[in-house]
Amino acid sequence: MLPILHELQETFGYVDRAALPLIADALNLSRAEVHGVVSFYHDFRSEPAGRTQVKICRGEACQAVGCRELVATAERRHGLTLGETSPAGDLTLEEVFCLGNCALGPAVQVDGELHGRVTPDVLDALIAMSRSRGHA
């Protein structure tokens, strides 16, 4: 089922509730079982994410080099808490536990691209770059 869910999210940006009965039917499972799987994994969203998606690593290795300050600054500057999407739908801030870049923390993923040694100002620049790409 995971490959199907990944494919849906890749294509539509989220896993629509309307897709669950279809998956259940195709795999000969109950709707509840499909819902159980979708809701178990952090990756699958039930609503579209913002146009710019930021995942900030909160693992210990990034904590040791200041990810708490990075998270606090990002939350303050964008008026969002981790896990939220801005009302205009342009930015989603999320947490992630380890991006495997533990020697070059704080690590952040912006629109799926990994960045290392990210300071609050670097993060702002990355978000601005993502926005300008989106508007181009």
Partner: peptide, 25 residues
């Protein structure tokens, strides 16, 4: 090749097997 979906517990071997089978891990 199978890709996980963001669940630390899948590093536990039996949880990983459940996930490979397409279930809640």
């Amino acid at each position: 090749v199978r890709m996980g979906a963001g669940a630390y517990v899948c590093g536990e071997e039996t949880s990983l097997l459940e996930s490979l089978e397409g279930k809640r891990a």
